[in-house]
Every structure is written in C-alpha cells, then in structure tokens.
Lab assay of single mutants.
Amino acid sequence: MKATFQVPSITCNHCVDKIEKFVGEIEGVSFIDVSVEKKSVVVEFDAPATQDLIKEALLDAGQEVV
C-alpha cells in the first residue's frame, strides 16, 4: 500500500531525518520519501503498518499532518 501525507511543518533536513527515523521504526514500512519542497511524505507499507500508525509517528516526530 502507498500513502501520501501533507506535512506543512517540514522545513529542513533535520525534519527529514527525524521523520525517516520515526516512520522507519514502524514494522511493515518499506519505503519513505520526504520532500521539503512539496512538504509531503510518501510511504509504502504493508501490514502491520497502517496509515494511522504512520500519522501517529509523524506527530511523535513533532510534525503537523493535514
């Protein structure tokens, strides 16, 4: 499964690193693409990962998800 999250609070590479760390810890996540320019995060994943778990990880990383 693939999901795109709009994350307007992404401003720098530190944000990218933190997002990759938090989302990458979720079992089932196979790909993460964070774009500072587009302020988006694209995640490819399989169970047990879910969109809700990914959104929670983004929030835990200090990001706003819309």
Rank of each mutant, 00 (worst) to 15 (best):
L59C: 06
S40H: 10
A47H: 12
K18Y: 06
D33V: 12
V16F: 05
Q6N: 11
V16A: 08
A61W: 07
P8T: 09
D17F: 12
N13Y: 12
D33I: 12
E64F: 12
F31L: 08
G24W: 13
C15N: 09
C12L: 08
T50C: 04
P48R: 04
M1R: 11
G28M: 01
V42G: 04
A57G: 05
F31G: 07
V29D: 00
D52A: 13
Q51V: 15
K39D: 04
L58K: 00
K38Q: 08
D60I: 11
V34F: 06
D33C: 15
A61D: 02
K21D: 04
T4V: 13
S30H: 11
E20S: 12
Q6Y: 15
E56F: 11
V41P: 03
V34N: 01
E25W: 09
D46L: 09
F22N: 05
D60Q: 14
L58G: 01
F31N: 09
T50M: 03
D33F: 15
V7I: 09
K38P: 02
Q6T: 10
F45Y: 14
F31E: 05
P8W: 08
V43M: 02
L58E: 03
V66E: 08
I26S: 01
L53A: 13
S30K: 14
S35K: 05
A3K: 06
Q6M: 12
F31R: 13
S35D: 12
L53K: 13
A49D: 01
Q6V: 12
V41C: 04
L53D: 05
A61L: 07
D46R: 14
T4E: 10
C12R: 08
G62P: 03
M1F: 10
V16Q: 05
K2C: 13
E37N: 06
V16H: 04
D33N: 11
L53H: 06
V7H: 03
S9Y: 12
S9V: 04
V42W: 09
E64Q: 12
K2H: 08
F5Q: 00
V29Q: 02
V66R: 09
A49N: 02
P48D: 01
P8G: 08
H14K: 15
V23L: 12
E25L: 14
V34Q: 02
L53N: 05
V7D: 00
T4C: 12
A3F: 10
D33Y: 15
V41L: 05
L53W: 05
S40T: 14
F45G: 00
V43R: 01
Q51N: 07
D17M: 13
D52I: 09
P8E: 08
C15E: 11
E64W: 13
S35Q: 08
M1P: 03
V36I: 13
S30W: 11
D46K: 14
I10F: 06
L59G: 06
V41A: 02
F45N: 00
V65S: 05
V66F: 08
I32R: 02
V42A: 07
V41T: 00
V29G: 00
D17P: 06
V29E: 00
I54A: 01
I10M: 08
K38I: 05
S30E: 06
G28N: 02
V66H: 08
E27D: 10
P8D: 07
K39W: 06
E20G: 07
A47I: 08
L59S: 06
S40K: 11
S9H: 06
V23Y: 03
N13K: 14
K18W: 08
I32E: 00
V36M: 09
G24H: 05
A57E: 00
K55E: 08
L53I: 10
F31Y: 12
I26D: 01
E44K: 10
Q6L: 14
A61M: 07
S30M: 14
V42K: 07
D46S: 14
D17I: 14
F31H: 12
C15T: 09
T4R: 10
C15P: 05
V23K: 03
T11K: 12
D52P: 05
L53R: 13
I54W: 03
I32F: 03
F45M: 00
A61S: 06
V41M: 04
